[in-house]
């Protein structure tokens, strides 16, 4: 499957991995998302910014196949798609790394890497894990992400939060993902660890992946992003190329411009 999607990319690099047009999602009578346009090519980072309740989760869930859009089109490599399930999205090469990462802390790095998709050899009752191959692959794949572990046998719980995040990313890439959605990967991390994750995002991008990076922190988004989608109360406040927007404008847009300006003004007076 990964070969198929790889070929598709090579066919026409100009076609975006994912393009969304006029996407809307209604839950009954409430509108969670409306008129959202976004697109992402291989080797790009699309940042989705928004405060709590802005519609970020709904946006991810549609791409990840957990929910279906009510209106609008979603095209993967130029073909209109509607994902019936997360499995569908995965088969199309779209993997989601959720905040809890789906790792088992006490298990070793390589066992976590292959959990649920273990490589085996041998036959019948002698079918066994191909430990050497899995260790080698895990080590190599992590090296591609810039994590050089001498010992992939260590429990994944001994890695830092940022490194665990990267293992989760490397795992989805190895299992065929061409587009990785990262759900708030930096929100629970300290400044230094967040930096580590941002570096891995850049590395994944340089390796030719598409990365959708969900965050509410413009300072994390701006350095790595190529394009920024800002959501506010379920509506898109526009899709901006990096060249067209500064970090100050981004911050202002994201937190509802005028409100923040007045807050800053208020705080300034209070502190003097």
């Amino acid at each position: 499957m990964s070969e198929d999607t790889a070929q598709a990319t090579e066919l026409d690099p100009g076609v975006p991995i994912l393009a969304m047009t006029q996407i809307a999602k209604h839950y009954g009578s409430s509108i969670a998302l409306q008129d959202v346009d976004a697109h992402i090519h291989a080797g790009e980072v699309l940042c989705v910014l928004g405060d709590n309740g802005a519609g970020k989760s709904t946006f991810i869930k549609i791409i990840a196949g957990a929910h279906q859009q009510t209106e609008g089109t979603l095209a993967v490599y130029g073909h209109n798609r509607r994902f019936a399930s997360p499995r569908d999205a995965l088969d199309a090469g779209i993997a989601t790394v959720y905040q809890d990462l789906a790792v088992v802390p006490l298990m070793s790095v390589w066992r976590n890497f292959f959990l649920g998709s273990e490589i085996t050899r041998g036959w019948g009752p002698f079918r066994r894990l191909d430990v050497a191959a899995m260790k080698r692959i895990a080590k190599d794949e992590l090296k591609k992400m810039g994590i050089d572990l001498r010992d992939v046998d260590q429990p994944i719980g001994t890695l830092s939060g940022g490194e665990r995040q990267s293992v989760a990313i490397a795992r989805s890439v190895y299992f065929g993902a061409k587009l990785v959605i990262l759900d708030e990967p930096t929100s629970a991390l300290g400044v230094k660890q967040a930096g580590v994750v941002l570096r891995y995002i850049a590395q994944a991008r340089d390796a030719g992946l598409g990365v959708i990076f969900i965050t509410h922190n413009p300072h994390h988004a701006y350095p790595v992003g190529d394009r920024f989608l800002i959501l506010n109360r379920g509506k898109s406040l526009g899709l901006h190329e990096k060249a067209d927007i500064s970090i100050a404008e981004l911050t202002a847009l994201m937190s509802g411009g005028a409100e923040l300006a007045s807050l800053a003004h208020e705080l300034e007076r209070a502190s003097t």
Binding site: V104, R111, F114, L115, G116, E118, R127, R128, L129
Partner: peptide, 9 residues
């Protein structure tokens, strides 16, 4: 074995 991996998981 895979089964063993699953037990730990």
């Amino acid at each position: 074995t895979r089964a063993g991996n699953w037990v730990f998981a």
